[in-house]
Lab assay of single mutants.
Amino acid sequence: MLDDRARMEAAKKEKVEQILAEFQLQEEDLKKVMRRMQKEMDRGLRLETHEEASVKMLPTYVRSTPEGSEVGDFLSLDLGGTNFRVMLVKVGEGEEGQWSVKTKHQMYSIPEDAMTGTAEMLFDYISECISDFLDKHQMKHKKLPLGFTFSFPVRHEDIDKGILLNWTKGFKASGAEGNNVVGLLRDAIKRRGDFEMDVVAMVNDTVATMISCYYEDHQCEVGMIVGTGCNACYMEEMQNVELVEGDEGRMCVNTEWGAFGDSGELDEFLLEYDRLVDESSANPGQQLYEKLIGGKYMGELVRLVLLRLVDENLLFHGEASEQLRTRGAFETRFVSQVESDTGDRKQIYNILSTLGLRPSTTDCDIVRRACESVSTRAAHMCSAGLAGVINRMRESRSEDVMRITVGVDGSVYKLHPSFKERFHASVRRLTPSCEITFIESEEGSGRGAALVSAVACKKACMLGQ
């Protein structure tokens, strides 16, 4: 009897593995994704193909990295998701002549009506938060230079001027797309009239992360975010950046690689679950690469896999709870928690219980395998993109072996128990001629924006502006 049951459990697990095998990517698959990513990057950089390229390769006008001589107080704003952060950054000489960066910050959550109302409502709310922060720190009387981390696709015309191309991540505030974001912020500050600010720089969160990590390690020339969304930036040779005049030196390019796949480059790798996630998203047909990796989508992918296993009578005796059938019910943090389970399955059992399920031991094991399959594919897909960037940098610099540091931020990278190990191992397999160091950014977005502002202020002083 026991043997029969054991055989049935083994057969069930084997069927589960057959279904989950769809998520496995072979090294040849990853090399294919990497080569296609490089081709799209090239198209994004070139003037004649930029418009139709899915990977936009947006110039950021960040050319210099901090040298350690900029000092002063800077205000930093960070808008990239449902939370908005205001930070005071003091850049100065530390002990023994070292450079020191001290920060104080406060988080504000953005109400739904500000995210989806008008641009005026959104930026009025942001300036209200700045006003509140300055009151708390008794700094209303000071006109501070301000660095703005704005983590949406922007076409820069200068370091302090950028046109919002399109909202992502659930934002829909009308009247912002096609307009200068810094102008919208300046107008809102003017409307309030109770404080003055000098907006000197606007950067993407990947750029802010790279600059913040450069402060720790001067070989950091790539910034990457794996959180709600997924994106990367890197220092490109100016001669390859056709959208900006000049051939000397390097400029940081914001790849906006989340949109890779929007022209069909990933079609052969998309599964039924991916198509369902895409169809029910706020932007169907867009940001397809990001939807395979980002935390906004990972939990939902797992939920759809679990429903398939229920329908195949391989999980929960073929019956799903009402909660499990509800879109968004299986949160991405559950994926991390399930994979963090120590082996007694308590954590998995508790999560499934909150979803109205009474799982068996085998159910718990199957749910864990589903989570591992989805998150491992995410790590491997992400590795193909980064390997594409790094191999490109090595080739354009004609280096036999390139040493490089990548600064990384984002909740999936930082909080998932195995993502970074799987990701690092896969990147290294795909970049055999590179020695890569990964560092995690601390308060990256805010500190990085302030350091970019410090560079901009120093330049302005040198130019006598």
Score class of each variant (00 low, 15 high):
Leu2Ala: 07
Asp4Trp: 15
Asp4Phe: 12
Arg5Pro: 09
Arg7Asp: 12
Val16Tyr: 12
Leu20Cys: 14
Phe23Asp: 14
Glu27Cys: 03
Leu30Arg: 09
Leu30Ile: 07
Lys31Ile: 09
Met34Glu: 13
Arg36Asn: 04
Met57Arg: 02
Ser64Glu: 15
Glu67Asp: 07
Gly68Leu: 13
Glu70Trp: 15
Glu70Lys: 09
Asn83Ser: 07
Met87Tyr: 15
Val89Ile: 05
Gln98Lys: 13
Val101Gly: 10
His105Asn: 06
Ile110Lys: 01
Ile110Ala: 00
Asp113Phe: 10
Met115Leu: 10
Met115Arg: 13
Ala119Ser: 06
Glu120Lys: 09
Leu122Gln: 01
Phe123Thr: 01
Cys129Pro: 01
Cys129Ala: 10
Ile130Tyr: 00
Lys136Ser: 08
Met139Gln: 09
His141Trp: 14
Lys142Ser: 06
Lys143Ile: 07
Leu144Met: 09
Ser151Val: 07
Phe152Ile: 01
Glu157Ala: 04
Leu165Thr: 01
Asn166Ile: 03
Ser174Tyr: 05
Gly175Val: 01
Ala176Tyr: 03
Ala176Gln: 00
Val181Trp: 01
Ala188Arg: 02
Glu196Trp: 08
Val199Arg: 02
Val200Cys: 12
Ala201Gly: 05
Ala208Leu: 00
Val222Leu: 14
Val222Cys: 06
Gly223Arg: 01
Gly227Gln: 00
Gly229Lys: 06
Cys230Val: 11
Cys230Arg: 00
Cys233Ser: 11
Glu236Gln: 05
Gln239Val: 14
Val241Leu: 14
Glu245Asn: 07
Glu248Asn: 04
Arg250Val: 08
Arg250Ile: 14
Met251Cys: 00
Cys252Asn: 07
Asn254Val: 07
Gly258Phe: 14
Asp262Cys: 11
Glu268Phe: 10
Phe269Thr: 03
Leu270Asn: 04
Tyr273Ala: 11
Arg275Lys: 11
Arg275Thr: 15
Val277Gln: 09
Val277Trp: 01
Ser281Gln: 12
Ala282Asn: 15
Gly285Trp: 11
Leu288Val: 13
Leu292Ile: 11
Lys296Ile: 09
Met298Ala: 05
Leu301Lys: 08
Val302Pro: 14
Arg303Thr: 04
Leu314Thr: 11
Phe316Asn: 14
His317Ile: 09
Glu322Asp: 09
Glu331Pro: 08
Glu331Gly: 13
Gln337Pro: 11
Gly343Asp: 13
Ile348Phe: 05
Tyr349Phe: 10
Asn350Val: 10
Leu352Trp: 05
Leu355Ser: 09
Ser360Glu: 06
Thr361Trp: 08
Thr361Asn: 10
Asp363Glu: 14
Arg368Ser: 09
Arg369Lys: 04
Cys371Trp: 00
Ala379Gly: 07
Gly385Lys: 00
Leu386Gly: 01
Val389Pro: 04
Met393Ala: 06
Arg397Glu: 07
Ser398Tyr: 11
Gly407Ser: 08
Asp409Trp: 03
Ser411Ala: 06
Val412Gly: 04
Leu415Trp: 13
Phe419Pro: 06
Phe423Val: 14
Ala425Leu: 08
Thr437Ser: 11
Ser445Tyr: 00
Ala454Val: 07
Ala454Trp: 12
Lys459His: 11
Gln465Cys: 11
